[in-house]
Design a protein around this nucleic acid. Structure first.
Lengths: 329, 329
DNA sequence: TTCTTTTGAGACAACGTTTTCGCAATATGC
DNA sequence: GCATATTGCGAAAACGTTGTCTCAAAAGAA
């Protein structure tokens, strides 16, 4: 590798002079400046980041982003948002923990070991202890959860509101017997969505019925099948799109029409999924990319210890498609 | 930050001794060893990666992975594969170029600037010049393209074979008037898939008909519409799943039944997509994760200058679903 | 006891930069 | 022509490690 020394030797100057020229600092004569620049170019010199980082105040920030599953469009979008704000001076190290919490812990330590300047944790299931520990050393951004630790910023979606507008939309479209297929409450968001649903139902004089289950297509399918057997339903608000897709399958199998007999609304608005399924699925959209952007920005703010916001709250909006376009008959 | 010096001071020893203990090298008395280890733990010492990397032979490798769109399941899976092989001693820096070739170039330079030890380029549209330039400094892995440069490894899928078995499958299922909705040939793979299709058709005494278009759902939809107007078709082999989804939409709109009247097969086997669309879509599966794994492994091999393979060829397999289950009537 | 070997530990250079300081040489002001 | 200000450049320390080399002390062999 060609170093600053090599350049200095060829140009017959000291390393300090070369460094000054390369960084545009200090005073160097125009003549030498040109000469040194030319040599550097000819030699295809690239500064050694590691050395540079050692000797000076860092000017380039590295931030680590850990997601439980990069294959999940939600996290892919998050990653996009984070990367979008990162110009020349920020490097994002993206890591996939494969939904394995133990691996996630390891990765976080690995990031620390590799000397990142801050960490964004995409998984809301991460343990509080870990967040506490890491935030002692580095600024941290987390999602969907509030922390009171210094050095931690929370980015949350107003899940309550999202669930509320989704439910209200079904009511407005004429559906009345609306159930909610929700999650078990180990995910904080599932609780919030449930509450939003309940509030909307109550505000309109309807009685809420919640069916907790898991978060994937199969869980949604099975639960919907059970519900159809058990009671009279004409509307379903699901805690996410996957569950909704499962529910749709169950409803179709039963010979019922969507949206004529039953209206369905999901959550997350995974476009690919929502547009592909038939009928296309209405869903609550999270501004995921924007949330990722906010995460990166606030992390950089913390790193350079500028103003610090403790919490960002984003508002969801409803994307209406065929699956909830109104009851008939 | 706590450094080795701090530990040395507290333990009343020299930095060299601390370093030896921490690295398990050299001879240190059991008593001091314990003492130093304890202090390091209490102080939550983390070695400075940058300093370490400067002074010694590197033991930890960083590899950069650039993908055009992390939101695309294909590249997300690739990223998974790459990350799967990376244990303690390898760090993956994943970057999304947002389908912007200029940005991609910048990112590659950025990676070089950040001192990665090798680069995996996920985008087969990358310019040859860039690959050439980068490979002068770093080992590079590319996909779907062959290079003769030293320091470059190619990982390719046998697209010809994939297209061949997909087409043959349609023929075996009783379809005869099979068309191919392909890509424009700026993507090398599109050419290969087209050739595979043609070969299968000719081998069975059928005449191939190729309709080149783009790579997304809308392009597939429009082209299929045109085809249905223009000629008598009972089978479609599409260059990817997105195009196939578009074709399915056009076919359904026309009032034709899949697979009864027309059989459809896609390429890439994006499970989420293929299983969600109705009828579910048969598709040629690429072992993407395995390819990512191979990429990472061979890159690490090159970095540590062990044996070097110039090219890896992977075989696709067909996943049969409803959309091609046989012609009726 | 005396000589040799082993053990434990510190001093110091090196890695490639940046940055501060000092000092000549030149330019400026009177 | 002298004092002062400015400019151009290099020497050297520092960043946190690792690794080599040296050396004293302890242990072993005679």
């Amino acid at each position: 590798m060609v170093t600053i020394k090599d350049i200095a030797q060829i140009a017959n100057v000291s390393v300090s002079t070369v460094s000054k020229v390369l960084n545009g600092k200090g005073r160097v004569s125009e003549k030498k400046r040109r000469e040194i620049l030319k040599i550097a170019r000819d030699l295809k010199y690239t500064p050694n980041y590691y050395a540079r980082r050692m000797s000076s105040r860092i000017r380039v920030h590295t931030i680590g982003l850990i997601v439980p599953d990069i294959t999940n469009p939600f996290f892919a979008k998050l990653a996009r948002g984070v990367q979008r704000v990162c110009g020349e001076d920020v490097l994002v190290i993206l890591m996939d923990s494969f939904r394995d919490l133990e691996r996630e812990e390891k990765l976080i330590r690995k990031l620390r070991f590799f000397g990142v300047d801050g960490i964004i944790i995409g998984n809301s299931r991460v343990s509080d202890d870990l967040v506490k520990e890491v935030s002692q050393f580095l600024p941290v951004v987390v999602f969907d959860k509030n922390y009171e630790y210094k050095n931690v910023v929370s980015i949350v979606l107003d899940n309550f509101h999202g669930a509320y507008i989704a439910t209200k939309h079904l009511i407005d479209k004429g559906y009345r017997n609306i159930v909610h297929i929700g999650g078990t409450h180990e995910l904080y968001v599932s609780l919030q969505r449930e509450e939003g649903y309940k509030a909307a139902m109550k505000d309109h004089g309807l009685s809420p019925r919640v069916y907790p289950t898991g978060y994937d297509e199969l869980k949604g399918y099975k639960m919907m099948k059970r519900i159809l057997k058990a009671e009279n339903v004409d509307g379903v608000f699901c805690m996410n799109d996957l569950v909704a897709i499962g529910a749709i399958r169950a409803i179709k199998e039963r010979g019922l029409k969507i949206p004529d007999h039953i209206g369905v609304v999901g959550f997350d608005n995974d476009e690919e999924l929502c547009e592909t399924v038939s009928p296309s699925l209405s869903s609550v959209h999270q501004p995921v990319e924007e949330m990722g952007e906010a995460a990166a920005k606030s992390l950089v703010d913390m790193i350079s210890s500028r103003i610090r916001v403790r919490k960002y709250v984003f508002s969801p909006r409803l994307v209406v498609r065929e699956s909830s376009s109104g009851k008939k008959g």
